[in-house]
Computed example of a mutant assay.
Amino acid sequence: MGHPNIPLMHRYTRPPRDKHRSRRLQPYTTNDNLNNALGAIRVLGLELIADELVPHLNTVLISIKDRNKGAAEQVVISGILPILSLCLRHTGALRLITAKLVAELAKESVVRKGFGDAGLVTALLSVLTSPDQELLLHVVRSVSCMSYDSPKLQELLLRRGAVPRLVAILFRFPDKEALEEACLLGLCNLSGMGVSEEAGVTWERGASVRPGESVFHGVSPHTCGFTSSVTLVRVCQWAPGQYAVSIEVVQRCSSSFWSLHRKQTARWFPLPSVGSCSNLCKFSKRNIPRTKSLKTRMFHTFL
């Protein structure tokens, strides 16, 4: 006879034992953990309670970093990208773990395609004024990966003022090597050059010949031992608070056969200031003879 104070519907009934079934419970698989975490983020996302969300975000982060099969597709199907956008606008530990996760998700082409519609572009750019260097590093890497092979995201980032924000970080943290390299890589990808983190570009500061100019050289490893590319980024101040950013890529051959390998055209992107990113100035495009052109991108930016 049951206890009178326990409702019948809440009583626990032991299921019949199956003698052919092991008594040990089967552990959760990686996909189970990921699905549970994604489901929890969907449920808790609107409340933005850091203590409850952070463990689930961390589970997703680990799965994406480990490149578990199908993990990126599960994130897309789950619909959590708009929630990540909200988390980035939060403060403290929730924002940092979200920035780490978004930086990893940005490496997955199937995921970053949805960043624009999910509001992640605007959310990421809003964080680029933060004084937190670790946070900035993850966000800048996200911007770089987003613009790696997507003209649509490149144009969206340009219209929203990504270039002046990256230039501002270069000047705010001149001694932070990792952050500097991430910004330079981001500028290259925004220009449409498609340089991945795995390319192994080595950056160093070059000697400037003009007052108010900062020069950066990025050297890529030789391809098959014959050619390498040198990326030249110049940031020139041409008026108080106004800077021109030019980017050139030179392909050169090794040994006595080295020469400039010129390609494509030059594009000019006049960009608005950080404070007024709503209006995009008209840009012009000029064709240069293929045999005498460098692959060049130039931005005009206001800090």
Rank of each mutant, 00 (worst) to 15 (best):
S284A: 03
W268T: 13
S246Q: 12
R210G: 04
V274F: 00
Q237E: 15
Q242S: 14
S228Y: 10
N287K: 12
Q237M: 05
F283G: 08
T265M: 06
E248I: 08
G206S: 06
H217P: 00
S229M: 05
N279E: 07
V274Q: 12
L232Q: 03
V230I: 09
V250S: 11
V245I: 13
Q237A: 13
E248H: 10
N279K: 14
Q264H: 12
P211R: 10
K263D: 11
P211E: 07
A266H: 07
F283D: 05
V250K: 05
S229N: 08
T265L: 14
Q251E: 12
S259W: 10
G206Y: 03
Q237C: 11
P272I: 01
Q237N: 13
S259F: 12
R252K: 04
S228R: 13
F257H: 10
K263Q: 10
T227L: 07
P240L: 06
V209K: 12
S220N: 02
R267G: 02
I247L: 11
P272K: 01
F257E: 10
R210Q: 14
V233T: 03
P221W: 05
E213Q: 13
V274S: 09
V209T: 15
K285F: 14
N287W: 06
L260Q: 06
S276I: 00
K263C: 09
T227C: 04
C224G: 09
R252C: 07
W258E: 00
V235R: 01
V249I: 12
G212L: 01
K285T: 09
S255V: 15
S255Y: 15
F257M: 05
R234Y: 07
G225P: 04
S254W: 14
T265C: 07
T265R: 11
S259I: 08
K282E: 09
P240F: 03
Y243G: 02
F216K: 00
G206D: 02
S246W: 07
N287Y: 08
V245K: 01
K263N: 07
S284N: 04
G275Q: 12
G218C: 00
P211F: 11
S259V: 14
F257P: 01
S214L: 11
V245L: 03
R252M: 09
C236R: 11
S276V: 02
T231K: 03
V274T: 14
V250C: 10
S259T: 15
S220P: 04
P221R: 10
L260V: 15
S259M: 13
V230N: 02
Q264T: 11
G275E: 12
E248R: 06
C277W: 07
S246G: 13
H261T: 06
N287R: 14
H222D: 12
V209H: 14
Q264F: 09
K285C: 03
H217L: 07
S259L: 09
V219T: 04
G206N: 09
G275C: 07
G225T: 05
V249W: 00
R267Q: 11
S284K: 06
S254C: 15
G241D: 04
E213C: 10
T223C: 07
P272E: 01
S254V: 15
W268I: 15
H261N: 06
G225K: 10
F226P: 02
S255I: 13
V219G: 00
W258V: 01
C224P: 03
